[in-house]
Design a protein around this nucleic acid. Structure first.
Lengths: 345, 345
DNA sequence: CTGAAAGCGCTTACAG
DNA sequence: CTGAAAGCGCTTACAG
């Protein structure tokens, strides 16, 4: 049925081995033979069978890309396409394809990864998240399977190749930015603490407070576990404190939008009554009112480099552990404002 | 190295054929034998080789998912993760994986699809877009390869299985909605006309004007080719017309956001001075100011059904051509307003 | 209910 | 520079 290497070999009066070598453009075949064989391939409309090649060559020419489970997926909406685009760019130039997994539950993700590895569906894996006590990560590390992560791992930092932003430093600098605007009461609406990105941002926030000799106030910290549960009550409570914050750092632009809406319902204006700064620079953040001051985390670059590092590992099992922080940019728009003298207190 | 079916067979004192049948849970093997073989599999930590199975069985257990090229990708940001989630859900329950392609250029996409088909990388393909004169579509149809589309094809509508929203009807109803609010001057900011979704929405808009005996005004139609090129000038020109529109239909929420910002710069308020209604109900559209009235197009469902139809085709080459419009919901928020008597003109 | 054998379509030492 | 042969790890008629 399908035309095979045998058919081509017969037509071209060469052996199948030679045809195979022409496919992979081996330098050991003469240009003349190559030309002859290629002509026959064209004429017969021959295309090498992907699976057969891979089975014989013991590779897959495919990488697996693992998302966090879907509850957080909604949250990562704007992240997803960009990071995939970065990975695709690298995969494409390495002549690799990508196998995508978005398991429903954490257990499903784990099972899918195990199956990818055990059944040899992929040559390497990119984990698009980093969380605490992650079985999937533990499995990959244990199996010594080539993988890289987007996100700093919680443990074994110097045994795992990863790409990340320097979230601790960024959070630190955001506090600094607000302090320079005269703010001293700064609240922090963080993300799900199972994810390292959330931990890091919180840690940076705290250490900045300490260095700048600002008081750490428990009530100024809110953990926003997922988009749905955050309600107006937590914001109301925050703003009803005896000394309410004059500025606020949000874990993600979408969180910031939501908060702004809640504040509005409470007749608190941004940035006049409170400044807001956040992370991730969604495509739409320039268009909301007020346009958000936020950190661009170079999502495309995160994906691209995570893939590049993975290909290094795939090519060379002995490739050294690497990790890198991708630079970020603070995009100053209009959600923050210098505090006037009429400071509270 | 890797443990194979042969190792299991030897240990279990059965033939490789029997092991193979245990893997696929064939009813022709006794429970007793199955149990015995499975125990050995566990003990040896055996996992069937994906590629070898597929080569022998002449299937791939993989579907290909094709995005539109990346210039439109940014535009589709919120669409992408949801539609993938829908597809994954279906793929998962059919025990299929997905191979993702995001070519850079249209030519790259075409080449990737050709290679997916010719090299037998996938059993079927989902096209996540529908545009005019699409080589990729033509190729798939010509090759008689199993595929489905998200989006109504421009040609051969009754020869191609697809899932879509009834964009013509929706656009029609949006006009109707605005007319019921008293609007007669309605502008339309459409999408790239190469895509059928844009054509359909425009067509629905026009036919509604006709049925409702509203004048069709050339200057009220703007084609917004991609997010970047739309500038404040086109909006200024629109609003400076002798009779400016009192309402506006935008092709996508992100377009609406952008327009709102431009209007704001021109000191035109939404919805007080002009009503805006749009398509696609982005996750954030509830949070912008003003919260957008928009059409929820059930993206998850589009992906799910496109995949379901594809699996029908894969299982049965003779499966009839199908197509279906997924219902949509108008989400009424605060970007539209009834026109008062102080109507212009 | 189970097995022997051929085959899926390639790659890659090995030999010349 | 090219070929013959073994092998990658499975599945599936066919036979019993």
């Amino acid at each position: 049925m399908a035309v095979t290497i045998i058919d081509v070999a017969r037509e071209a009066n060469v052996s199948p081995s030679t045809v195979s070598r022409v496919i992979s453009d081996s330098p050991r075949i003469s240009e003349r033979t190559k030309r002859k064989v290629r002509q026959v391939m064209d004429r017969l409309n021959y295309h090498p069978n992907f699976q057969a090649r891979n089975l014989a060559a013991k590779s897959t020419k495919t990488i697996g890309v693992i998302m966090s489970h879907s509850t957080s997926l909604a949250f990562q909406n704007p992240f997803f396409p960009e990071v995939i685009r970065g990975i695709c760019t690298s995969a494409h130039s390495n002549k690799y394809g990508m196998y995508l997994s978005t398991g429903g539950t954490e257990e499903e993700i784990y099972q899918e990864v195990v199956s990818m590895v055990q059944s040899k569906k992929v040559d390497g894996i990119i984990l698009l998240y980093s969380k605490m006590n992650d079985r999937t990560l533990a499995f990959l590390k244990e199996a010594d399977f080539p993988f890289t992560m987007v996100g700093r791992p919680y443990q074994y930092e110097d045994e795992i190749t990863y790409i990340d932003n320097d979230n601790r430093k960024i959070a630190y600098e955001l506090v600094n930015y607000l302090v320079n605007l005269g703010h001293k009461q700064i609240a922090f609406i963080g993300g799900n603490l199972e994810y390292i990105v959330s931990l890091d941002r919180l840690e940076g926030f705290k250490s900045a407070l300490k260095d700048m000799r600002l008081q750490y106030i428990e009530e100024y910290i809110i953990h926003h576990h997922n988009q749905v549960t955050n309600d107006i009550d937590s914001i109301r409570k925050l703003m009803n404190l005896e000394v309410p914050p004059t500025a606020l750092i949000a874990h993600d632009d979408s969180v910031a939008y939501e908060i702004i809406r809640h504040l509005e319902a409470l007749s608190i204006r941004v940035p006049d009554d409170i400044s807001i700064i956040s992370f991730n620079n969604h495509a739409l953040s320039a268009f909301v009112k007020p346009p958000l001051t936020t950190v661009d985390i170079s999502i495309f670059q995160l994906g691209l480099e995570a893939a590049n590092y993975l290909f290094e590992k795939i090519c060379n099992t002995q490739a050294p552990i690497k990790n890198r922080f991708i630079p970020t940019t603070l995009i100053e728009r209009q959600s923050t404002k210098a505090l006037r003298n009429e400071t509270i207190k």
